[in-house]
Each structure stands twice: as structure tokens, then as C-alpha cells.
Simulated scan of single mutants.
Amino acid sequence: MSWSEVGSRWRVKLSEVDWYLCFGLMFFTLVVFGLSMAVWKLNIMLNDADALPIEAVAIKGERKYTSDEEIQVALQDLMKRSFFSADVNQVQEALEALPWVYQASVRREWPAKLKVFLIEQNAVAHWNGDAWLNSYGEVFDAPTNDDIGPLPKLAGPEGQSKVVLTTYGQVSELLEINGFNLNSLSLSPRHAWHGVLDNGILLELGREDKMARIQRFINVFPTLEKQVKTVAKVDLRYDTGLAVGWVNAQKRASK
């Protein structure tokens, strides 16, 4: 085959190529490449803390025990991220990890602010010595705060905090109506109830009929009132009566 024949064949093949399709594919490829580069650059910019920093965090909600310094420390690492890359769920978790924070809600506000609403724990009682109970009967750990007034001391097995708090409310209400104040209430591992009044008298209530036994104490107390300073304990774990432990007897027993 001569070179002239080869050249004529190539000219025929080139004439058969669909140039519109080729240029269309090239244009589409360039567009896709350009969009990919734009998305890549946009992603870099959105995640650049220097280009789009978080300039402010607005904290709302009544706070008594959570300071600005605690919030700053909790968010110091998260604040290094950009406005768009900051995970509001992580911000929420960091705030709710603070000891006196019960709940936090976080949202972005354009162009560079995070808005936070905090709800603090409402401590209503001490729990097992070094923990606290909130108004829902949930246990939480937090440092002691002098701004909190005197609270009842409650105790019980793990998982029984709501039961103890509910029972305390019922028992203390009945006692208060009749002029008594309940300082502490505990539930033993064997589910027996023990209460202590503000005058130091220990009430042994047992496991059953605690409200009826409290009423029995209220009914009988007038006969003990003259000797209230020497009453150490009232055992109400009887079907119809009660037993009184005296202060002197308790001292002798302890010796």
C-alpha cells in the first residue's frame, strides 16, 4: 500500500468523526473539573477558622452557679473552628458536661455568632452525702455552693432516687401540716424507711404503711412533747403501737 493510499484512508476516518460530540465531551469535562475545583476551594474556605471565625458566643438563661470562665474553658478548643465547621452538637455536649448545667441548646446566627441557652440544675436535696438531686429526682455531681440554702438529706440504693424524693415530698407534707420538719429521709438496702426531724428525733418507719405510721406518731406526740428533748428515737414498726428510745438510754448503749 502506498503512502498516498494510507493518507486517503486517514482523511476518510477523520471526516467520519463527530466533532460536535468531541467538543461537547471536552466542554463537559472542563465544566466538571471547574466545579470540582470551586467546591474544593469553597470547602477549604468554610473550614478555615481564620477566614470565617466564630466571633462571639451569646449565652442566655438564668445562671447562678455556672461562670463565664467555666464556659470559656469548656469551649476553648471548639472555638478554634470556623463558623461552619463548628459542630453545634459537640458544643452542646461540652456545655452539658459542666457540673451545674442541666440542658443546653445551641444554634448558629449569621454571620459569626453562636447563640446558647442554658438551663441549670435545680438542686432540691443532697443525695447519699456527696451528690445532689434535681427536681426530677435525677442524681448529679457538682461542687458545693454556698449560695444554696439548707436542703434535705436523702439517701438510698442506686436507682431509687426518684422514689425517695417522691416519698420525702409525701411524708414531709404530712409532717409540716402538723408542725414538724423532716430534715432527712433514707431508704435502706432492705427497703426500710428512716426519717430524722429537725429536733433530732429519729423515726423508724419500716417497709410498709409509712404514711399511717407517720400519722400515728403525730397522734401520739402530744404525750411525748413535754419530754421531747430526751426523745432520741420513735420506732413505729408495729401494727398498733410504737416504742420510744430515750437520749440517756442511747448514750448508755453507746458506752
Rank of each mutant, 00 (worst) to 15 (best):
L46E: 09
F117A: 13
G61M: 04
A94C: 09
N199A: 11
F140W: 12
S172Q: 15
G245I: 06
F221H: 11
E225I: 00
R216G: 02
L174Y: 08
W246G: 01
A49P: 10
K153P: 00
M1V: 10
I177V: 12
A51H: 02
E225R: 10
W19E: 00
V88F: 11
L30P: 00
T29I: 13
E5P: 06
L182I: 02
M37N: 12
W19D: 00
Q76L: 00
E69D: 14
Q170T: 13
T223Y: 04
I71K: 02
E109A: 11
I214Y: 02
L95F: 07
N183A: 12
K229A: 09
K80H: 07
V139S: 05
V106A: 05
K229T: 03
A123C: 01
A74C: 04
A249R: 08
E138F: 02
I44C: 01
Q72C: 06
A51I: 06
G61Q: 09
V12K: 12
P222R: 06
Q227V: 03
L42F: 09
Q227E: 10
A232R: 13
A253K: 15
N145H: 15
R216I: 04
W246S: 04
R237K: 13
Y168E: 04
N181S: 13
D146W: 00
E120G: 14
W110A: 07
G34K: 10
K80F: 02
R9E: 15
A243T: 11
T167G: 08
L30C: 11
M45I: 03
H191P: 00
N178H: 15
A94H: 12
V247A: 10
P152Q: 07
V196M: 12
K41D: 10
F28Q: 06
R11A: 15
A56H: 05
R63C: 09
W3L: 15
S85Y: 03
W10Y: 14
K80L: 12
D235P: 06
G34I: 03
G149I: 07
A125V: 06
T144F: 14
P222H: 03
A232P: 01
M1I: 11
S186L: 08
L203K: 08
G245D: 03
T166Y: 07
N181W: 10
A243Y: 05
V234R: 04
L182N: 02
A155F: 01
L202S: 13
D87S: 05
W10Q: 12
T223H: 05
K60C: 00
L75N: 04
Q250N: 02
I148R: 14
S135T: 00
T240L: 06
I148F: 12
V234H: 11
W132S: 08
D77V: 04
E208M: 01
R190P: 01
K115E: 13
S172W: 05
E69H: 15
L185P: 09
V139Q: 06
F33I: 09
R252G: 07
Q170S: 14
D87E: 05
D198E: 15
S15A: 15
W10S: 14
K80G: 11
L98F: 07
S85N: 02
G241F: 07
E225H: 00
R190N: 13
D239L: 08
L14P: 10
I148L: 15
D48G: 02
L21M: 03
S67D: 11
W246P: 05
D198Q: 14
L14S: 02
I177Y: 05
N181I: 15
E176V: 09
K41H: 06
L78P: 08
